[in-house]
């Protein structure tokens, strides 16, 4: 029993630095372009102390003198010690980050926020529902399940991307499907004639995913409207709202519940979230501009 617990346990997240507003310095070891606009950075800490995190947590990542943004961790929680961040180039800070050259440094604060708590889904079926770049925050959770595959029942990954060219981590998807006992279903919004796969919204994959709603935990990550319609579809099929976990995105300046930007009514999404149950989120996701 003890052994099992140890095997299942997540690495304990690092305690915050003495002043959580002061960053640690990490060096860019590798960068990889994943898609047209998305890059993965592998970072090593200058002080040599790997950053331990729970799947679903994020860091505040900064390009010196330019700015800082919350970016979820996309690497293996049991991995090599390199910190992996998958970043979409959508603004001036992310542009600077993805173009940081090898050997240069960036600032890292964190890890912050709640995790997926994927170990709590052990013993039952698991459904990952992913939209777009949402695969990056879920990747550590998927890797955890892969590592502890025998503790889970049926595991499915339903992934919606914009076009075939926007599909992230394609080698991972193939590996998970072929070697790891995960049923991976990919669908895209639009595709050229040459595409042999599915076209359609990700929710259309739910009816044929073949999980047992009563013993399923779902982890949903993507744009808010996509998460909401996925969560409703899951609940309509009988998955308990508190077992549908979503990761919310809002503006964040501090990551530690002080700056106020990420508030969703009574929640500070940087410390109360970003991962929360649909039972808690549903009333807050159904009102515009809350």
């Amino acid at each position: 029993m003890t052994e099992l617990l140890e095997a299942t346990a997540q690495p304990t997240p690092d305690p915050p630095t003495p002043d959580p507003m002061v960053p640690r310095v990490f060096r860019v070891e590798r960068t990889r372009q994943d898609t047209r606009d998305t890059y993965t950075l592998e970072l090593s800490p200058l002080d040599g102390e790997p950053l331990r995190f729970a799947p679903g947590q994020f860091t505040m990542l900064q390009a010196w003198g330019i700015g800082e943004v919350p970016i979820s961790i996309s690497g293996d929680p049991h991995g090599s010690g390199l910190l992996e961040h998958t970043i979409r180039n959508v603004g001036n800070v992310t542009r600077a980050l993805v173009h940081t050259s090898r050997g240069a440094t960036v600032g890292v604060r964190g890890p912050f926020g709640t995790g997926w708590e994927v170990e709590r889904g052990a013993g039952g079926d698991v459904v990952f529902i992913v939209g777009g770049i949402g695969l990056a925050p879920l990747r550590p959770a998927i890797l955890h399940v892969v590592r502890h595959r025998d503790q889970y029942g049926r595991v499915v990954l339903l992934y919606g991307a914009r076009t075939p060219d926007d599909i992230l981590f394609a080698p991972d998807l193939e590996h998970w499907q072929d070697d790891c006992g995960i049923d991976v279903a990919v669908t895209v919004d639009n595709a050229p004639h040459s595409w042999r796969g599915r076209v359609g919204f990700v929710t259309s994959l739910i009816p044929r995913a073949g999980f047992d709603p009563l013993r399923t935990t779902a982890y949903v990550c993507g744009p808010e409207v996509m998460m909401r319609s996925s969560a409703l579809a899951l609940r309509d099929r009988g998955v308990a709202a508190d077992r549908i976990r979503l990761s919310m995105e809002r503006s964040m300046k501090c990551g530690i519940g002080l700056c106020g930007h990420c508030q969703l009514r009574e929640l500070f999404l940087c410390v109360d979230g970003p991962v929360l149950g649909f039972d808690r989120l549903e009333p807050l996701m159904s009102r515009w501009e809350l």
Binding site: W64, G65, G67, K253, H261
Partner: peptide, 22 residues
């Protein structure tokens, strides 16, 4: 509520971070 402003000098050798009211 606060925001963060980052600034670097023209030569890029120093960077400063401020917490400002928002």
């Amino acid at each position: 509520c606060t925001s963060i402003t980052d600034a670097s000098d023209l030569t890029g050798t120093t960077a400063e971070r401020h917490r400002v009211w928002d």
